[in-house]
Computed example of a mutant assay.
Amino acid sequence: MPSFASPHHAIGELYVAHHGWIVQLLRRKLGNHQQAQDLAQDTFVRLMRQGALPGLREPRAYLATVASRLCAELFRRRALENAYLASLATLDPQEMPSAETRLLVLEALDAVGRVLDGLGARVREIFLLSQLDGLTYPQIAEALGISVNVVQKAMLKAYRTCYAAVYEL
């Protein structure tokens, strides 16, 4: 590779070679060309933020993975937003939070969702049973057919992940 080649130059080459393909892939997933174009752009922005690219033998597979993760984040955000808006619909008009408060809540829910997505499925399930359902560790162990020690270790991992998300920005 010539000395003038930079990570941004390499991403530019990927963009030129694969942008149309990634847009079509995303359009099939999303059913909307404009959203597909937006997420395709986000895919390449994500690559730029990562800095150096790994040696890519299969660039389309790599791009598809990045784009699929962005799609999953979009779907998760939409689901959270829809659930929040549905809960707001049950409020009396005088109890309705301001637009600014609604946006802040949605951003906080999105951040929590990203942290929870970072946990493994089992750890996430244990954490949610404890924190949302209020089950004790022995109750969780019994419900899932695991030992209390496994529950304790999962909760420790979940708490560490949450702590890191809040305090180790």
Rank of each mutant, 00 (worst) to 15 (best):
L104H: 08
L109N: 05
G145P: 09
Q139T: 01
Q35Y: 01
R57L: 14
L169I: 11
Y159W: 13
L39T: 01
V115D: 03
M96A: 12
P7N: 11
V150Q: 13
L47M: 07
L129R: 15
A86N: 09
R27F: 12
E107Y: 05
R49N: 09
K157N: 09
L88P: 03
F44W: 07
R69Y: 02
Q94W: 13
V115C: 11
K157S: 14
G145F: 06
Q34G: 00
F44A: 06
L26F: 09
T101W: 06
S130R: 15
E107T: 10
R27G: 09
G12T: 00
H18P: 03
V45H: 08
L144Y: 04
P138Y: 02
V166G: 02
A141N: 10
L85E: 14
Y137L: 00
L26R: 08
R122L: 15
A154E: 04
I146C: 13
I140D: 04
L47V: 08
R160Q: 15
W21M: 08
H19D: 07
L30T: 02
S130W: 10
A89N: 11
A67F: 06
N32E: 13
S98K: 09
Q41C: 02
L80P: 03
G20T: 14
S130P: 00
I140C: 10
V151C: 01
A111F: 04
E95P: 00
A121T: 12
A158H: 02
V112T: 11
A79K: 13
L47T: 06
D110Y: 04
L39Q: 03
A89L: 06
K153F: 01
E73T: 12
A36K: 07
L109E: 03
L132H: 14
E168R: 15
E95F: 14
